[in-house]
Design a protein around this nucleic acid. Structure first.
Lengths: 348, 348
DNA sequence: TGTTCGGATCGAAACGTTTCGATAAATTTC
DNA sequence: GAAATTTATCGAAACGTTTCGATCCGAACA
């Protein structure tokens, strides 16, 4: 029955108070840097605390504070388990930032099709979080159920209504990609994308079109814009066939993301089309891994950790009750937009 | 200043007790299914609880229970962020199992080279976990520091001294792979691996050798066993060059894992060697993603979620203080060994 | 010189549970 | 039919903090 962790007993605030010859409340004030405590007392308490190896018990702190110290991080299971380390790195960013705020991050996945009675994360059932971060496209019912429960909420790499969100500056990134291709002399630049109802991907398409327009290029001979499917390698491989069936073959393709671009790369290779000689390819996300076989992919780099960090910051300010401010980034109403960078490699 | 989550106030055990006309302690007993409570009272309390939408506050429960309800899940940052969804799926398994035990899983990463004063996870500093799960190869100082703190601990896909661990049955898997190649008529089967000091990979090498021996095959013409490097695609690509420089080229290669096998596949292709016609290849882990370009990889499938589930079960029993028992799996002393399965695809 | 104010410290209530021991009624045992 | 046991319920202490006054003291103010 004895707990395996039993030992010489963990010291409490009481022990510190007694040994330092002060009241419990004074120790509390010192530990939290609140109120007025003389320097002398403060250092004495701190010393005793260190000496006794005192660390406040979180459960005890949270009780009167009426907060949990937890924040929930939710994404779709299929997104989390997918090959490219995209969401994992976003999570890493939130985790990193959470440290500064003394928060724990509880990572949970939900299925693609969300049913509240079956899949509501435990930390929500128990109301054991102070706020929630949602990464990627998830069922809108889920998002609304959280917002409806009045739990502070920040979306990452997704948008829905006017819920606070931290997103990639997709439009800017797409323009970067197009400008690059234009500078390489391309005049017929195709687009390839699936799941184009996704707000982020839609923005990339818009940026692409603006880029074409800015360069005074006419309509490209080919624009593959599918609303269906997942924007992954398989879809990219299949859809890209259409590019080679177009009336006139474009000299360059801008893809909605790297996974699709990888599919295109392989389809091109299987048709004997050389990249970048016959066809230049640019992706988006910067998640393609090293590969000696394919040409390395020119892409728009997304700072995934930064997305997570900013979202965590934003959420924290939401929880504190005052409006967040990001002087360094465009912030229109409730949206924080994070800039991207073009990474030029072999495929263009 | 008003909390954004403020509302009509969350109901407490007190509210339920009053409305049901019983003592607080009785409600507690009902909610936890403890002690002796009449059926009548029990259902009445349960009804009231549901009616008031009562959910016990975890912080309040944990205080007198002297437990945290959290378990820590630790892996190396570079492992977590790596392309193949190996560790993420292990995590998913633990998370799934944790539900049944009412536990939260706190995922944190540590760097490859661990320094206790810099990288000790917050949940350890605050002693805010009841147990710890460690996935993959991590700094042994870290492992020992946890064990030294007398915190229950289970390793996953790694072994160190006699710490409890849930591991892949690497030897069995490797034998499966070799038997398969033998059955295909191969008599000269090479091995390719890096980071071979890793206990799991070492076991795969052993299984491979036993397999060769069982088939009464002589020494293979080539065994690439590097102790250095990470067992990844790049290493696989480089090391595999040695295979083609061997005195006699083997007809098949068993790789320490899929990443290395992918590297080998590309190296072979770049040298104009056809797979599987000229060379059969088998990997391990089953993490290679769909790829229209390379032949799909024959591999030894590892049930990653199951590894996580079993580890969580094991840890839970450790925390409860009684020895774990797994009738279905081989369990030598403190090791739980999970069987694998051979998945035959195009590369062999 | 009395009054006000701010710094320093303390005591006690409160946070929402679990659990131990007490009590009482109902049932079994001898 | 008394004693012992089992079932059902309750009250109160305990868990380890935070925080809200209250108190005290010395300094600035009028």
């Amino acid at each position: 029955m004895a707990s395996p962790t039993s030992g010489p007993k963990r010291s409490t605030i009481k022990d510190v108070a007694k040994k330092a010859g002060v009241a419990i409340s004074t120790v509390s004030l010192v530990m939290n840097g609140k109120g007025f405590v003389s320097n002398e007392t403060s250092t004495r308490v701190l010393n005793v605390a260190k000496q006794l190896n005192y660390v406040p018990r979180q459960a005890a702190r949270k009780l009167p504070m009426q907060s949990t110290g937890n924040i929930g991080f939710v994404l779709r299971a299929d997104h989390f388990a997918r090959s490219e380390p995209f969401y994992t790195r976003i999570f890493l960013g939130t985790e990193f930032e959470a440290h500064f705020h003394g928060l724990y991050v509880l990572l949970t996945t939900i299925p693609q099709k969300f049913d509240a009675s079956l899949h509501t994360p435990r930390f929500l059932q128990e109301r054991n979080v102070d706020g929630v971060l949602i990464a990627g496209k998830v069922d809108s019912d889920f998002i609304e159920s959280i917002a409806g429960a009045r739990i502070p909420l920040v979306l990452i790499d997704y948008q829905l209504k006017d819920h606070p969100a931290v997103v990639i500056d997709n439009q800017q990134g797409a323009k970067l990609a197009v400008e690059h291709l234009v500078s390489k002399g391309h005049e017929d630049i195709a687009f390839l994308g699936a799941d184009m109802l996704h707000p982020s991907l839609k923005e990339r398409l818009e940026g692409y079109r603006i880029g074409l327009n800015d360069a005074r290029l006419g309509k490209p001979s080919c624009e593959i814009v599918s609303d269906q499917g997942e924007p992954d390698y398989g879809t990219g491989f299949e859809l890209s066939q259409q590019i080679f069936e177009c009336s006139k073959r474009p000299t360059a393709v801008f893809c909605a993301n790297d996974s699709i671009a990888m599919g295109l790369l392989d389809q091109a290779a299987s048709q004997g089309i050389r990249v970048p000689e016959d066809l230049a390819v640019v992706g988006f996300d910067d998640v393609a891994r090293e590969d000696h076989f394919r040409p390395s992919l020119t892409t728009v780099r997304v700072y995934k950790e930064q997305l997570g960090e900013l979202a965590m910051k934003y959420l924290n300010e939401l929880m504190a009750g005052f409006p967040a401010t990001y002087p360094n980034f465009e912030r229109r109403s409730h949206i924080v937009r994070v800039p991207t960078e073009l990474i030029i490699r072999e495929s263009s």
